[in-house]
């Protein structure tokens, strides 16, 4: 056991059973098993401690396992890369935090995360910003077609104006998205933008029996913004963005 550890995917109620073909991290993919302790359990698989993890296939395996589990049972994702010494360590872990884990699992029973991620159409966005900012439009006219070195200062000034306008726009869009979907979701978490053209990025926790209403409301939000942004719906997912309140101090 010295050279092996247990990769911990997530905490689940003890009546969760991995299917025989569930694949974990590693190459070849490890078999996913469950370590039970009373009414709690952890989804785990063996990993060699010398084996590097974090390949795209590992991340995908981790997410698919957790998302697939979330579709049938509540699951608390454990941070990717968490490896413990063995089943005893898992049992200790479940004992030590039993009440918090049990409470969190109750909270996520029947609930799923959906993430909405939008990206502005570059042309539509820049057009709108220039139309609202005569100073920016004038600068744009001055730098257009000139090499960066010859117009660097103006470009930086122009870009800063646009950047601030886009940030405001993003805040507004995120707020409107949250408002539009608050009625069909139980919680939300605004996420940081992942590109300068991000328009919205919000995770929502949704009751399983209101998924259709939620998706309809998201579709309506997207429909109202056709041409301005592309909106993608990711999910259903495990509640990745809602477990931070359950983080345990080291």
């Amino acid at each position: 056991m010295a050279d092996n550890g247990l990769f911990v995917y997530g905490i689940v109620p003890s009546d969760v059973e991995p299917t025989s073909d569930a694949e974990g991290v590693g190459d070849p993919p490890a078999e996913v098993t469950v370590v039970r302790r009373g009414d709690l359990a952890a989804l785990v698989s063996e990993v060699g401690l010398g084996e590097p993890l974090g390949r795209p296939a590992d991340l995908t395996a981790y997410q698919e396992l957790l998302d697939g589990t979330a579709a049938v049972a509540p699951v608390l994702p454990v941070r990717f890369g968490t490896v413990v010494t063995g089943p005893d360590a898992v049992a200790d872990l479940l004992d030590a935090h039993h009440d918090r884990f049990a409470e969190a699992l109750d909270e996520y029973e029947g609930r799923l995360q959906y993430t909405l991620h939008g990206r502005f159409d570059e042309q539509a966005l820049i057009r709108a910003v220039l139309a609202d900012n005569p100073a920016a439009a004038e600068l744009a006219g001055q730098v257009r077609g000139r090499p960066e070195q010859a117009s660097r200062e103006q470009r930086i000034r122009l870009g800063e104006i646009i950047s601030q306008a886009v940030e405001l726009r993003r805040e507004t869009e995120n707020r409107e998205l949250v408002d539009a979907l608050a009625g069909t979701s139980v919680a939300n978490a605004v996420r940081p933008p992942s590109s300068e053209l991000d328009s919205v990025h919000v995770a929502f926790l949704v009751d399983g029996d209101r998924e259709d209403e939620f998706v309809d409301a998201a579709e309506e939000f997207a429909r109202q913004r056709i041409g301005l942004m592309r909106l993608r719906l990711l999910g259903p997912l495990a509640p990745y963005d809602f477990v931070s309140a359950h983080q345990l101090a080291g």
């Binding site: 993890l53 991340l59 995908t60 994702p77 968490t82 990711l234």
Partner: peptide, 28 residues
Amino acid sequence: LADVVETVLDKGVVIDAQVTVGVVGIPL
């Protein structure tokens, strides 16, 4: 992959150091 990275990295329950033998090297 970008979606996966954004969705799962730096998320989830953080386990106490006492029971963790350590994080295996994760380039991503």
